[in-house]
Structure formats: C-alpha cells, structure tokens
C-alpha cells in the first residue's frame, strides 16, 4: 500500500515542480495577465498531482472547475479592469512577505517532520484488500454484509464497489449523498447566494439615479 513505483515518484516530482514553479511566477510576475495564465498552469499542476495521489475524480474536478472556469474568470477580470497591462509593482512590504512565507513554511515543515504519521501498514490485510481491490455489499436494507470475495449465493442483492483508492468516483458520490448530504445542500445554497450577490454587485447604477430624484420631490 505504501510502496510506490519509480514512475510515480518521477511523476510526483515533475507535477510538484510544475505547480511550485508556476506559483512562483504568479507571485512575482509584473504583468497581471501572465500571472493569470501562470495561475492556470499551477492549477493544472495541482490536478496532475491529484492524479498521482490516486485521487482521479478530485483531479478531474480540479481541472474542470479551476482551470476551466476560475482561470477564465481571472483572465476576464484582468481584461476588463486593466485595459493596458500596467503591471503590479510589489508593495513596500516585500521583505515582510518573504519573512512571513519563510516562517509559515518553517513552522509547517517542523510540524510535518515531528509528527508520527499512522501509516497504512497498520491496517489489517482485510482492510487493505477492501481498499485496493474492492468489496461487495451483500444483502439489502439493514442487513448489509461486507464480503471481499464474490458471493456465490444467487439470491443475494450484490453491490460491487471498486477499490476506493483505485476507483474512487462511485464511493465519493455515495459519500456526498449519504454522510455529507447536509454539506452538499448547503454548498448549493452558497453557490446560489454567490450568484445573486455577484449579479447584485454588477448591477448598472445609472437607472437608480432618476428614481432618487423623483422620490425626493
């Protein structure tokens, strides 16, 4: 479970280099549009990183939402607000920024290296098999049993699940609508609120002026 092939390690370091490289371009580039494109590149690197970490569904959602939509939003904003790329000079607090970044990184690195992480090796073989190769849910209603091998009983209602760390899509879907149903619905509400707020903020103000004048009379 914990051992990874050489190819995975190479892919991991390549994806990390891409992510961190583009992120460095975002925070240092003067031309704001180039920073927006570098941000899209960084998001793509993070998506590849998710693929390396066996989280394919999250990786595809990352590319779809971040690169496909949020980066376009940023590029739109840059185009509308800065007609000419006037650039963004770093403010006076550059030294403060570097100090803050280094301190945060040092603190997090210290925390990472001084914690003993429970490893997947501590799991029993049953759990590891369920995680990597899949499990079958036999029976229906309240009487669901887990079986690791294909059940031979013809009458049983069998739901086959792929190994959750290999084929995570179905299991994430089940999680979203069973355990995290409340969060799912609240996020829907949040997106509607953000939609309405955005529309409200972008409303054309010129129409409201004559009304104020007529009301005061």
């Amino acid at each position: 479970m914990m051992e990874v092939s050489t190819l995975t390690t190479i892919a991991f370091w390549a994806a990390s280099a891409m992510t961190l490289g583009f992120a460095a371009i975002v925070v240092t580039q003067r031309d704001v549009f180039r920073a927006a494109i570098a941000l899209a590149g960084s998001f793509l690197g993070v998506g590849i990183l998710y693929f390396v970490l066996s989280a394919e569904f999250v990786g595809v959602v990352q590319i779809l939402v971040y690169v496909g939509a949020i980066s376009v939003l940023m590029a739109f904003a840059v185009m509308f607000i800065q007609d000419i790329a006037s650039g963004s000079r770093p403010a006076q607090g550059r030294l403060v920024g570097v100090a803050a970044a280094l301190l945060i990184f040092a603190a997090l690195a210290f925390a990472v290296y001084n914690t003993t992480w429970t490893s997947m090796d501590e799991l029993g073989t049953d759990q590891v098999a369920a995680l990597t190769e899949g499990f079958y849910e036999v029976g229906e209603g309240d009487d669901i049993q887990i079986s690791l091998t294909e059940p031979t009983d013809d009458d049983a209602v069998v739901v086959e699940n792929g190994g959750v760390l290999v084929d995570s899509t179905g299991s994430v879907g089940v999680l979203l609508v069973r355990e995290y149903m409340l969060a799912f619905e609240i996020i829907g509400l949040l997106l509607v609120a953000s939609l309405i707020g955005g529309l409200l903020l972008m409303r054309d103000r010129k129409e409201s002026e004559p009304e104020k004048g007529s009301a005061s009379v």
Partner: peptide, 24 residues
C-alpha cells in the same frame, strides 16, 4: 507531499502580503 503543500501555501502567503493589485 505535505512539504509541497506547505510550500504552495507559503508562496500564496507571500503573494497575499506583498502584491499590490487586488486581482493578484
């Protein structure tokens, strides 16, 4: 992996503190 995550967070922190344009 956690180091990469911390590095990305730190780079973002640098950007938030020291960039002048609201978009960046």
């Amino acid at each position: 992996v956690l180091l990469v995550s911390a590095a990305l967070f730190a780079i973002g922190a640098y950007g938030v503190v020291s960039r002048r344009s609201l978009i960046t």
